[in-house]
Amino acid sequence: MPSEKAIKMNRIIKAIWVFNWFNSCGFTELIPVVGSRWDMERFGMIITPTPRHADVLFIAGYQTWKSLERAKRVYEQMAEPRVVLGLGACTMSGGMYWDSYNTVKRLSDYLPVTMYIPGCPPRPEAVFEACVKIFQHVKELK
């Protein structure tokens, strides 16, 4: 008998709504995910206009100290259950901006990032795989 939380998570896996917090090149490289080549809607994923509707927060690209404050506010506005996905090398290590004085080196020091997707930028296939895995991952965590 699966737990109540597992049943809830199964419902969310069928309809993942995404809010994008994209600072840099991650956004332009992820447009194909919405378009006709990869088409995220066939997996029930749509991009929501407001964080209130979202289940997943995509954070792509390097975060500066100022944009980090806004990212935190966006995260606080989301409804539970919610998860954060870090996209690209920049969120993991600062990427090519690793020695800059005003970029965040590791996002999980400031936000509860559940999963990182490596790549500069990641391929759309990797994003889909992450969306399938992320809720499984959350289920295992708690």
């Binding site: 809830k8 419902r11 969310i12 506005q77 409804a79 259950p81």
Partner: peptide
């Protein structure tokens, strides 16, 4: 079904 289990802010 998914919206029904989300938090109602």
């Amino acid at each position: 079904k998914k919206l029904m289990i989300k938090e109602n802010i």
